[in-house]
Amino acid sequence: MIALLTRDLRLAVRAGGGFGLGLAFFLIVTVLVPFGVGPETGLLARIAPGVLWIGALLACLLSLDRIFALDWEDGSLDLLATAPLPMEGIVSVKALAHWLTTGLPLVLAAPVLGVLLSLPLEGYFWVLVSLAAGTPALSVIGTFGAALTVGLKRGGLLLSLLVLPLYVPTLIFGAEVARRGAEGLAVQTPLLMLAGISAGVIALLPFASAAVLRINLR
């Protein structure tokens, strides 16, 4: 499993695209928002947590179809399936690799982009915390969606239609934590809910993803 993880990480970093693409997309989205709503500082500060969350979510979505597509095309997914490794493990490792290459950079980049949106000072910490707690859930749910659409030709569009509704609870609680944090309110309840969703999803969803992947490889 560790070998698979290092292989995936190495592929993502060296084989162009994947690694930086999500970050660049995140940057573009955040830069575009002030153009759309106007450069007024007060307004930007108020919507900054939500915008950062939406941007992170979309950047995450953008890179989802790469989780299985390349391995599916060159047949290494079939090899992995026959390897003495439970499918659940493969799926979890894939999700972890996706999080390390997409989610974690997004988390670290969010405070920097917060400057562009004149995020209030109290907000930085909570944006960081909420994204750190929420992006693993995004990766795991996304892996489920990627496993569902792995063999399809027009998978990308369908993938977003399937995955975005599943992102709703995570987004609500995540953005709520960031917003309350920025406004200096108590964040405990939404933060606990967000962490609960992440933990539950990490524990349970790999089984569904593995089942789906097995069906697709049949």
Binding site: F144, L148, L162, P165, L166, V168, P169, I172, F173, E176, T189, P190, M193, I197, L205, A208, A211, V212, I215, N216
Partner: peptide
Amino acid sequence: LTSILCLVGSVFAVLSRYAVLF
């Protein structure tokens, strides 16, 4: 695939219900 999506979707639909309530 759709039946598994339906199962997972049901859980998330319930979750969303409580999330938006909050």
